[in-house]
Structure formats: C-alpha cells, structure tokens
Nucleic acid binder design. Structure first.
Lengths: 365, 365
DNA sequence: GTGAAAGCGCTAACAA
DNA sequence: TTGTTAGCGCTTTCAC
C-alpha cells in the first residue's frame, strides 16, 4: 500500500496537516513531535506524491525542454548540460523532440505548457519569432527561454554571437591567404546570422561574394558528405570552405577524401560548434567554439531566477537576452601545421577568444 | 484566467462532469449538447490540466527515462529513438541523467518512481541487478525495462547480444589473418559479456589470451585516444585491436595517427555500436551495429503493452527479455580495401548479419 | 502547537 | 441524459 500523509498521521493519531508541516520544516510543530514524525517517515520510506503536491502548490518543479533532435551531437551536448544544471536547481526535465517540425514544436509547447511544467526551454537553430509559436508562448504566463537563436525583444534568449563567430572563421581563412572561400549549409535569408557574417566578412576583405559558392544543405554528416562533390565542381575551385556546422564539416572532409582531395593541403575547412568529435574527426577540425555549458547555465539561471521571484512575490526580472562570445579553435583542417608539433598524445587546442566580451542586454517587457 | 472544466460548464449552466464526458467522448451526453461543448472548448482553447487529471486517474502518461549521459553519441541516438517512439504512443518523457553514478541512479529512480511516471526505462551499459537499484525497483509497482544490458530473471530488458557481437568482430579480424588481437575498454569481470565474448572468440581460434593485451578504459574519445600509446608499447605489438565502443575506437585511431601509425595498414581496428560518426571518422570504422531503433521500439512496446493490460484489467504480460542481434558493418578500419571501389559519394556499407535470429525469451515472474 | 476544512482540476460511481 | 458526490494527496488558511 502506498504510504501517504494520512497514513503517516494515523500512526500518531494526529492530523495530516501536522505531518505536512513537520516534513516541510515549517515552524509550528513541537520539536518532539516533529522528530518523531520525521523518524517514522524515514523508516517507512515516505515519498511525497509529486502530483498531489503539484496540484496544491501549482508548481511542478519541472521544466519542459523542446529540442529539434537529440542524435545530433550539438543538440546532445547542449541537452546534456541543460539537464545537469536543471538538476542542480532541483528541476526535473520533460523532454520533447520535434524533428525540426514546426507543427510538432507547437504541439510540444501546448502539451508542456498547459500547467504541467513551470517553465519551458526551446532549443532551436533557426529563426525564432515565427508568429504561431510566438503567440502560443505569449498566451501562457510561464517563463520560457530560447536557446541557440536570438528572439524578439520580449523573449528571453541565450545564443552564441553567430555573426562574430563566422567572421572569425572567415578571417582565419583570409589570414592564411585564402581568397576563394565557399560555404556549405548557410541559409540565404536575412535572418541567418551566419549568412550575414559570411557576407560581411568577405566584403570587409574586398572579396567577391559568389552565389554559386554558397552551397545550401541541412545539418548532417550525410549532407555534408554529399556537398563535397558540389564544391569540387565549382570553377574556379574554392581553396577553402566554411561549413555552417561541424557535422557538415566532418561529412565534407570525408567526401573530399573520397574524391582524392586532401584537407588541408588541397582545400581548407572551418566548422562551427566545436562538438566533441570535431577533435577526433580524421583531420582534427578547426572550428568556432560555442560555449554550450555556459549557455545551458545561463538558460537555467534565467528560469530559476524568474521562478524564485514569482514565488517570493517579488518583481519579476526583465527579459534577458544573452549573446555569448564564440572562440576560434585552431586544429588541423585549415593547415596551421606549419609549426613543429611535439608528438604529445593530447588533442591539440589553440584557443583564440574573440575580442568582445559577453554581452548582455536587459530590456523591459 | 485559466480555463477549466468548471468555467466551461458555467457557460452552459451545466455541471463539469457533463463537460468532462463530452470532451472525453464518453457516451451519455446528448449529441447536441456534446457538439456545443466541444465547439466552445475549442473556441476558448481549452486544454485539460494534466496534473488534475493525473491525480484523478492515477496515470500521468509519462515515462521516466534514466540515462547515464546524453553527450555520448550512443546514448544520444538511443534516447532519440526512445523519445520518438514514446511520443508515438502518446507518452511524455521525463529525462534524468546520472553521470554514470550509481547513487544518482537510485535518486533518479526515487524521484521518478513515486507516482509521477507510469513506467521507467533505464539505459545502462554495465551490470544491472545491483542490489540497491534492483530492490528499489521491486518495491514499486510500476513497470520498468532495462535497455542495453541484460538483467536478472524477473526484470524486462532489451539489449544487443554483446557476446555474439564481439565474437563477430574478433572473427572478422582472424579471418583477415590477425593473430595478435588486443582490446581496449573491456571490463575484466565475469558479468561483462564483451569480455567473455572476446575471450571465447580467441579461444575458439586457439589464440593466446594475454592480460597485457586487455587495456581497460572508460568509454570516451579521449580515453581511446590515450590508449593508443599503451597499445603501441606492447611487445610483441598487436596487429589488430577490438575497441569496446566506437568512441574508443575513434579516439584510438586518432592516437595511432598522431604517432605515425596507420589504420588499417599498420594496425586494424574494430569498434562496437555503429554510432553515426563511425562512418565519418577519418578512417571509416568497421564496427558492430547495435539496432538502436529496434531496441527503442521494443522497450516502448513493453511498457505500453503492460500499461494497456493494467488499464483493461487484463492479465499483465510476462517479463520480456529481448536479446537483439548485432550486425558486422565492414568499412575501412580493418583493411578490407582490397576490392576496387567506385568513387561513389556514399558511405560504404557492407552489412553482414549474424546467423542467429532475434531471440526472445519469455519468462514468468 | 494542532486540528479542521477547503480547495487545487479532474474523473467516476452513483442518483435522479 | 444529466447532476451530485466523493475523492485522488497535498498545502494552507483559519480556528481553537
């Protein structure tokens, strides 16, 4: 038989409310009784019923996490950190994967939002602020934060500064002397910060922006792999390529290899994300590091701080919009093999931080 | 103001139970009223309150998922499939990551178990049946299934046949003529099926089992990488190595490369798991495929079938213990490059299935 | 310091 | 067909 507050109370011929107070550590129970109750509860291995409590308190201590997928290493790593930090703040996490489907995203939101989670986090790597999703959010009163992409003015978000990141990547290539720099996986829309960054970086160097040098594809190993052929068909052939994500970069390098094209000797490749495999991917990948753990921490902080305030009936914090700084991680895929390297069995890592600082904008609703 | 059954009922001056029936599609409401109610509910965008419903029905439609980590691609891929199948069966999933910590596993179990989830799935890659965890499970009345490792007689599980898998891997190596086959990442315990498989496979071939050829390490890219040095120090040097997981194999290959040792020319490597990156890892990895999606499907089927039975008050199914068959996936890392290969931009895949069938043992409690 | 009572939102058995 | 009632397990306000 399940053990409940009432059953515990019966043991001592007292009322369940007293037991509740004793176990919640609320003042107003005699120390002796309190200790007896606690002891007995432990002995009987009493566990408060989360659902009952949630109904009474209107708090579930659960945050909903909507993600496009989990198999993708970038998502996997971010989800990992989110869960760990959530756990530290005593939140459970409810996971919902949408398969990059906008309708599914809305469904997930509905399911989670309607009062079974205290907050929702949404991981997305593309434009956010699309009307439906956005409206759905605003109708609810629970806090939410977008992770991975910037959002409209009145929505919390934490994301890397993509434009700066891409700029660093392209600059690295131009510094190495590259003039014909193609890209794979960019989305040719004004809302794609990576696309903007790519264009601006080339413009700054006075390099021509050629549409045929912009090969679009989704983010996966396979699409990257298949893009290799497209890149090699270009005339004149690019000497370097910026891949919009590491999975693409890794696939690409494999594709090149398959066609007898060496990286970095024949063509240089920079990635974006710095997923863990990047260091172990055939040719260790030079890439732009996303501070995933930091982003996760910030996201969890935002919701837990918000929730703390409503609990204490304090003024709720302003919308927080965090752009965190990327870093350039130099490995082998762009041909920085010029220096002598000791044969030390550790993944080589030269980190070059961007000059900017972590920017944080606070705006009022 | 939140919209509830009562508030909906007020609109028509009827009782909330009628509204409840109408919306649940339960017979016993006049068609006209029913339609009016449904229409109004949709208009007001009514969403049933999951917590209230859960308290009343003692069902949360949520399954708890306890995993050691999510950043690891093997875990990530399995979690992905689990979530997708759970979703298909209308389950939410509550995720709990334990960081390979047994105490955390028990905590997670407690948190989830005590009536906020209908079932729990536990993903583990090591021995299961450890007293504490096991007892904790048995005290609860909710169904659970272990994924990835076989469990004691009265516990559901679904796992690959690891012993067979390792046997296939080692056999592949011996077929290629290898005699000195080291291993990395095995656990030298009687409960490690991979270890058993490795030993048996060598014995079968009449090969010596050398303790120094068994290099232990945890499953990560980094530990694999660091193990390369250890392998190369052995005398006589092995000509092939079996890595207990793909992440180890990938790290290992990078370590070898770093030290100027070529794979497969100088040394052959087989992995285990067939994670997605395996096909794109510098040298495409020959490995043992775990049917992750199939395993996920079986796991979800087990719990949803169980839950269906208790709901219908039918006899609950017997314990299901599924060992699914691994497959040998031949790529490049063992030197099967003998045949001419067309330059076709697709990851090469030669799948060799094990001769056995998917075994399923049903046992009574 | 402790008990009684109400109520969170819903479902389900029973009456009408 | 519809309403009434009770109750899921807990918290919390108000009496005592």
């Amino acid at each position: 038989m399940e053990i409940t507050l009432d059953r515990l109370a019966q043991k001592f011929n007292i009322h369940r409310s007293t037991v509740s107070r004793a176990l919640s550590g609320i003042t107003g129970v005699s120390p002796e009784l309190r200790d007896k109750i606690i002891k007995e509860a432990e002995e009987m291995n009493y566990q408060p019923h989360a659902i009952g409590r949630a109904l009474a308190t209107k708090k579930t201590n659960t945050i909903g996490l909507i993600v496009p997928c989990v198999w993708n290493p970038l998502c996997g790593e971010i989800i990992h950190h989110l869960e760990v930090y959530a756990h530290l703040k005593y939140f459970n996490v409810m996971l919902s994967v949408t398969g990059y489907d906008e309708t599914e995203e809305i469904n997930a939101l509905r399911t989670l939002m309607y009062r079974q989670v205290d907050a929702v986090l949404i991981l997305t790597n593309y434009e956010f602020g699309k009307d439906k999703l956005f409206l759905e959010f605003k109708e609810s009163s629970i806090p939410f934060v977008v992770i991975g992409y910037s959002a409209p003015a009145n929505i919390n978000y934490v994301a890397v500064d993509r434009e700066t990141g891409v700029n660093m990547a392209v600059e690295h290539l131009t510094n190495l002397g590259h003039k014909r720099i193609a890209s794979v996986g960019l989305i040719m829309k004004s809302y794609d910060h990576k696309f903007i960054g790519y264009k601006k970086a080339l413009e700054k160097e006075g390099l021509e922006i050629r549409n045929d040098f912009i090969v679009t594809c989704e983010a996966s190993f396979e699409t990257g792999y298949n893009s290799a052929k497209k890149i090699l068909k270009l005339t004149p052939c690019p000497t370097a390529v910026f891949a919009a994500s590491d999975v693409i970069a890794i696939g690409l390098i494999n594709g090149f290899k398959e066609m007898g094209v060496r990286v970095p000797e024949d063509i240089a490749v920079v990635g974006f994300d710095d997923i863990e495999v990047a260091a172990y991917a055939g040719v260790p990948l030079t890439t732009i590091h996303q501070p995933k753990e930091e982003m996760a921490k910030i996201a969890i902080d935002i919701v837990s701080e918000y929730l703390r305030c409503v609990e204490e009936e304090a003024r709720v914090p302003l919308v927080r919009q965090n752009l965190v700084e990327p870093k350039l991680v130099i490995r082998d895929s762009c041909g920085m093999k010029l220096q002598q390297r000791n044969i030390v069995l550790q993944p080589r890592l030269i980190v070059r931080e961007s000059t900017g600082h972590c920017r944080m904008k606070d705006r009022s609703e």
